[in-house]
């Protein structure tokens, strides 16, 4: 103890340096985790984006009918979007995107409701299955960009989605929100 008091200035300097180094290291680790999480969230979102974009462009492809059902919940989220397209054998096939409420997570006092997006072909599960969406919305637009509820006047389909990627301890959770949107122009909606 006497030795420490004799060299109090050195002890203070060494402690300060040690604290700064430790804090910097911890911060660097956290930053690396956050970057990885952001990358993972973005990759997952873009994977869904590729899928949706190519699928929606085929609305009404080779079939007489196009969009069959578009249903929303109170939060303006699309809970069901069903459309016809031709399958590999040349027969009409009904493809549906169904949004199902799953769990909710609490982050900094804010409750975030999560949803799962399932895709079915002829009523059977087929592809997709994204389960960390906090928002999903498909809107029909007329040629001038205004929203329309009438399939006959719809020319564009606008999609908006938010993918939430929670990370960290349950007591101190953080999340990364990945936003994505696109507007597609299915050729079959123009005829």
């Amino acid at each position: 103890m006497q030795l420490l008091f004799d060299n109090i200035a050195s002890v203070l300097v060494a402690s300060t340096v040690l604290l700064v180094v430790v804090a910097t290291n911890l911060n660097a680790q956290r930053s690396a985790v956050e970057s990885s999480v952001a990358y993972a969230a973005k990759t997952q979102t873009l994977s869904m984006a590729d899928y949706l974009e190519s699928d929606l462009l085929l609305v009404g492809n080779g079939t007489a009918d196009t969009i069959q059902t578009i249903a929303s919940n109170e939060a303006d989220q699309t809970t069901q979007f069903s459309f016809w397209r031709m399958d590999n054998t040349g027969s009409p096939m009904l493809v549906s995107y169904l949004l199902t409420q799953t769990t909710s997570i609490e982050i900094d006092g804010e409750t975030v409701q999560l949803y799962r997006l399932d895709r079915t072909e002829g009523g059977q599960p087929a592809g997709s299955g994204f389960s960390t969406l906090s928002h999903f919305e498909i809107t029909m637009l007329a040629a001038d960009g205004t929203t329309t509820a009438d399939v006959a006047t719809a020319r564009l389909l606008r999609v908006r989605a938010v993918n939430v990627y929670p990370f960290g301890d349950p007591e101190k959770m953080n999340m990364f929100r990945s936003h994505w949107g696109i507007t597609v122009r299915p050729p079959s909606l123009e005829t």
Binding site: A143, G145, L156
Partner: peptide, 15 residues
Amino acid sequence: ANAVVLEEIEIIDLT
């Protein structure tokens, strides 16, 4: 921004 711009291009192309 990508989503917004692509939508505007489609609308201009259509109208």
